[in-house]
Every structure is written in structure tokens, then in C-alpha cells.
Write a protein that binds this DNA or RNA. Structure first.
Lengths: 215, 215
DNA sequence: TGTACATCAGTGAACGCGCGTTCACTGATGTAC
DNA sequence: TGTACATCAGTGAACGCGCGTTCACTGATGTAC
């Protein structure tokens, strides 16, 4: 029994600096071009310049590394969404403001999927369950996960009187489904090879439909 | 030079009966529980009871088998959609009829994804591109692919005056995205562990939103 | 109808590959006296 | 300040696995005479 009951403190100095971090970073790079399947322990250690089994000091499993990569991917998405919101010009009209924020979230989501298809696939590969939807490791710099950002804007729509309160419950899943579906069809589905302007038009139509339909 | 210019006729008798068919069937079974990644040449041949390399008489590649399995999965989806349409009671009101058919397609799509998640994943794994969206191998018993079935019902909505003609173009992608997104979130995403009634409610809300939003 | 021959569907054995994971280890770092 | 010791991050080698694919083959089937 040692005096301090705070559990094992992480060692302050590692020979590699921060191997855990480096492996996750390598994993993200692998996911970037190849999705989660491409996140392979041996390749990650190879990239970091370390023996394959060194990974087991920091992850119990290959699965544990995958989970970390998924969480990072979702966090990256959250950051992209936050940035889009931050870039918005403030409007006097509160209702117009809320609408613009809603639109911005959808646009950021769709852009992220197309710019980082590998990370996007990893983020929603099915490794992360609902119980983790609010976990801080999935959050962006402001501390909100993608789903939480969406919920906040939906609450805002209710607050400014656009969305009737009785239609608020579950709305996040309906909105999310629509945008997520388009993202999926765009990067992995039959819409893959459409010209950019056709894609932009479909995106506009979808966000339009969502805005009209959830009310 | 032989007299007939019709190219090589497929042999009428195979020792195995129809090994090509049997391998596809085995591949479907593998995809059923495990998605496309689980469709593995060696395992398929093992299940059929044949040497691993026998597959190369019928498929140039593992990829060729995967493509065949994907096509079959889409065809199965088409059949499920057709069946739902066939089960519909005819209504006197043409507009109500068209609406009901639209709803039926969405419901069938969502049910298929949940009953056969493995096949569903395979169908939309990204192996099949847009150029194949109308290919007969993806079609159900009536000869229509899932996308064609959706387009037909959208045309019907225009014909009965529910959907303005100028909003028809591209509507199939918007509708498809929404339903596809929900299906994905339900089977691989964070909505996976929701109780059945919550799922049903979200499905209702989504189909509702689509109906209202595309007009 | 019977025989010789050509075809080619499926065989058996082997290849090289990269993977996740385990083992006993080593040697740099941190700590107690 | 200096020395002995404990910790534990990363090493090196090896394991067993299942995979896709290639090779030279065999023997059942179909066909021409």
C-alpha cells in the first residue's frame, strides 16, 4: 500500500516523447487514405519508427487504437463544424441567425466528408456506440461533439420560434440522417462521380428540404 | 475459324452443377454476417466444398466475386421494395395512392437495412459506381433497380400533381440520401441500440419530413 | 453404335505476404538512501 | 553529491494464421469420325 491513493501517475518522460500520441497520429494518417481497415498496428509502428510490439505499452489491443482514431476523427469533424459557425457573420435578426447556423453545420459536415473521406468513414464506422455520443474525446475545441453542436442549434431554432417545441424531440436524428446519408452517397455511393456543380445543387436541395421538412 | 460467330457458349454441364452460382450464394451468406470484408474466396470455396483455386474458373479475381455479391444484394433490396409495393391496397384517390407508394418504398428500404444489415452494407459498400445504377444485375424480379423504383414513384408524384414538375429533377438523390442516412445510422451508427419504438418514431418523422420537404 | 480424341472444370500442393500477438530481454530513467 | 536499486518503455525474434494467387495435373464430359 502506498500513501497516495491517486492511482498510477503517467510517467513524465518517455523515450519516444509521446509514443501513444504518435501512434494515434500515424493511425489517423492511415485512416485518411484507406479508412479504418487501413489502420494496422504494424504499419503504424513502422511509420513511427518503433518495434511492432511497442504499441502494447500504450494500447491493450489493435481495437483500442482504432477506437482512439475514431474518436479523433469525430473530434476533427466537430472542429470543422465549430469553425464554420465561427466564420459566420452575425445578423441582427435572431431567426435568420439560427437558420444560418443550421445551414452552416450541414455545409461543414458535407464538406468534411468530401475533403476527408477516410476520416469521415472512420468516424462513423460503427465502432463508436451511442453511449459515447457525448464523450469528451469526440469533442472539438469548444468541448462539444458533432451531435451536441447540432442539438444546440436545434434548441436555438426552438428559442427563436422557428421550430415548434413539440417537434424538437428526436429532430437531431432526422436532420443528421439526411445529411449523413448524402455524405455517404457522395463519397462511397453512386453519387461519387457527379460533377461539382451537380453535387452543390443536390446539397442545396437537401438542406432546403430539411429546413422545410422538420418544421 | 469456326462457323458460329457467337463467341464461346457456356458449357451446359459442370461437374458441380453451377459452381459460379454456388460461390455467389456462399458469398452472400458470408456478407450476410460480416459485410463485404467477410466475403473471402477461400471461405466461399470451403463452404461449397471445392478447392480454393476452383473459383478462378468462374471469377478472374476476388474482386469479381465481390462485385457479383454487391449486385445480388442490390437486387434483393429491389425485390423487398417491389414486394412492399405489391402488398399495398389500391386506393381510389390517385394522389393518396402515389403517396402511399412513396412511403412504402421508404419503409421497405429501412426494413431491409435492419433485417439484412450485412447485405445492405455490401450493397452500398462503394464497389458499385453510378454507371451501374441501372444495370440489370441490380434489378428485382420486375427488372427495376432500387433507384429506378424510386424514380418511378417520384414521376408518379409529379403525374398526380403532388410534386411540382420543376422540383422533380434530382429529387431522387435527396430522398434517397435521407432514407439511406437513417438506415446507416440505425445499423452502424449511434442509433443502433435504440429501443424499437424509438426507432419506429424516428422513421415516421423522417419519412414525414421528406414528404413535406421535397414539395 | 463404338472408339479416339480434345476440351476444360476442378485438384493438390505450394508460394509469399502481412498481420496481431507473445516472450524473454535490455538499458535508460527516476528514486531512495 | 554519490551510489545502489527498481521501474518500465521500447527491443528482437518468433509464433501461428489465413489470405489471394499460380502451377502443373487429372479425369470426367462432349464431339468427330
Amino acid at each position: 500500500m502506498c500513501a497516495a491513493g491517486t492511482g498510477p501517475q503517467p510517467r513524465s518522460t518517455y523515450r519516444h516523447g509521446d509514443l501513444r500520441r504518435a501512434l494515434i497520429e500515424a493511425g489517423i494518417e492511415l485512416a485518411r487514405d484507406g479508412g479504418l481497415d487501413a489502420v494496422v498496428l504494424r504499419e503504424a509502428t513502422r511509420r513511427v519508427g518503433v518495434a511492432p510490439n511497442a504499441a502494447y505499452r500504450h494500447f491493450t489491443d489493435r481495437r483500442a487504437l482504432l477506437l482512439a482514431v475514431c474518436a479523433e476523427a469525430q473530434a476533427a469533424l466537430a472542429v470543422a463544424m465549430e469553425n464554420e459557425l465561427a466564420g459566420l457573420a452575425r445578423r441582427a435578426d435572431r431567426a435568420a441567425n439560427a437558420r444560418a447556423r443550421m445551414h452552416a453545420l450541414g455545409a461543414a459536415y458535407l464538406r468534411f466528408a468530401q475533403v476527408e473521406p477516410g476520416l469521415y468513414r472512420a468516424a462513423f464506422s460503427g465502432l463508436l456506440g451511442m453511449e459515447l455520443a457525448d464523450h469528451p474525446t469526440l469533442a472539438g475545441t469548444a468541448g462539444y461533439t458533432p451531435l451536441q453542436l447540432l442539438c444546440a442549434v436545434l434548441d436555438e431554432l426552438v428559442a427563436v420560434g422557428i421550430l415548434p417545441a413539440e417537434r424538437r424531440a428526436g429532430a437531431e436524428f432526422v436532420v443528421w440522417s439526411s445529411v449523413h446519408g448524402l455524405a455517404t452517397l457522395l463519397i462511397d455511393g453512386p453519387l461519387r462521380d457527379l460533377p461539382a456543380e451537380a453535387i452543390a445543387e443536390i446539397e442545396r436541395r437537401l438542406l432546403d428540404m430539411v429546413e422545410k421538412g422538420i418544421i
